[in-house]
Computed example of a mutant assay.
Amino acid sequence: MKYIILPILLVLTGCGSLPSDMMLMGDSMLDVAPKGDVDVRYPEWRKAPQISTAGVQGPMGQQRTTSYDSLQSFLLKNGVDYEVLPGNHVMVKLKDTIKFETGSSKVSSDSSYWLGMMGNYLSRDPGIDIVIDGHADSTGSPNFNDGLSLRRAKQVKQTLIKNNVAMDSIFTRGYGEYVPACTNKTTAGKACNRRVEVLFVVSNN
């Protein structure tokens, strides 16, 4: 008889240790079971951490953040044509380039106005880095054009800094005459190659 009573006592003792709130919920364990995957992974908070993104993905699966949404709206509002490049980050390349006279790194008045407008916007969004690529045509020696292309990029950087864009968010590169966008055999082609290209790298946060 004692072999039968002992298991019954153990069962009754175990039931007495159940939390009182569980007893109040009724007989069904479904009342206290996790309601979904989130409850299992985040039992204390009952909700997953929120990721601040726009919920849209780029060509390589990049998350397009609120900074991207804001940048896109700004470019569209001002009629600036652009393309989104593949990569681990959202990279927005402007199709319009900044043009220069032969042998010069001086930013034209038209480009200065445009850069001023762009700088005012960028100074308010720390989630965007700016990459400035300088180029030259084939006039002059390759060594001269290497330096000229970098001076052009740095001049554009200085124009943005004057409009309160953070210095450490701007990166410059010079490609000399080695990455032409057009032919160097015509006057129009050389004018096309005397340029600075602007690329925005948008933070994933």
Score class of each variant (00 low, 15 high):
1 M>C: 01
4 I>P: 15
4 I>N: 15
4 I>D: 04
11 V>K: 01
13 T>V: 10
13 T>N: 14
14 G>H: 12
14 G>D: 12
15 C>D: 14
16 G>N: 07
18 L>H: 03
23 M>H: 00
25 M>Q: 11
27 D>E: 10
27 D>L: 06
30 L>S: 13
31 D>A: 13
32 V>K: 06
32 V>M: 02
32 V>L: 02
35 K>E: 03
38 V>A: 08
41 R>Y: 11
42 Y>I: 02
43 P>H: 08
45 W>R: 14
45 W>D: 15
47 K>I: 04
47 K>W: 12
52 S>R: 12
53 T>V: 04
53 T>E: 01
55 G>N: 08
57 Q>F: 12
61 G>H: 13
61 G>V: 05
62 Q>I: 01
65 T>S: 08
66 T>W: 14
66 T>H: 15
66 T>N: 15
67 S>V: 02
75 L>V: 04
75 L>S: 07
75 L>E: 07
76 L>K: 14
76 L>S: 11
78 N>K: 08
79 G>L: 04
79 G>M: 12
80 V>K: 13
81 D>C: 05
82 Y>P: 02
83 E>C: 11
83 E>S: 09
84 V>R: 06
84 V>Q: 12
85 L>R: 02
85 L>K: 03
87 G>D: 09
89 H>V: 02
92 V>I: 05
93 K>D: 01
94 L>T: 02
96 D>Q: 15
97 T>K: 15
100 F>L: 05
102 T>P: 13
102 T>F: 13
108 S>Y: 01
109 S>I: 11
111 S>Q: 06
111 S>G: 04
112 S>W: 15
115 L>T: 02
117 M>F: 11
120 N>L: 14
121 Y>Q: 01
122 L>M: 09
123 S>Q: 01
124 R>L: 06
125 D>G: 05
128 I>L: 14
130 I>T: 12
131 V>L: 01
132 I>Q: 02
132 I>H: 09
135 H>A: 12
135 H>F: 12
138 S>G: 10
138 S>I: 09
140 G>E: 10
140 G>I: 00
142 P>L: 05
145 N>I: 03
145 N>T: 03
149 S>D: 09
152 R>E: 03
153 A>P: 14
153 A>T: 14
154 K>A: 08
156 V>G: 05
159 T>P: 00
160 L>R: 05
160 L>P: 15
161 I>T: 07
162 K>N: 11
163 N>R: 14
163 N>S: 07
167 M>G: 15
168 D>K: 00
170 I>R: 06
171 F>A: 03
172 T>C: 12
172 T>Q: 07
173 R>I: 01
177 E>W: 00
181 A>D: 14
181 A>M: 13
182 C>M: 07
187 T>S: 08
188 A>Y: 03
189 G>V: 08
190 K>G: 02
191 A>I: 05
192 C>T: 03
194 R>A: 09
194 R>C: 07
196 V>M: 09
198 V>C: 00
200 F>H: 09
200 F>T: 07
201 V>P: 15
202 V>F: 13
205 N>K: 10
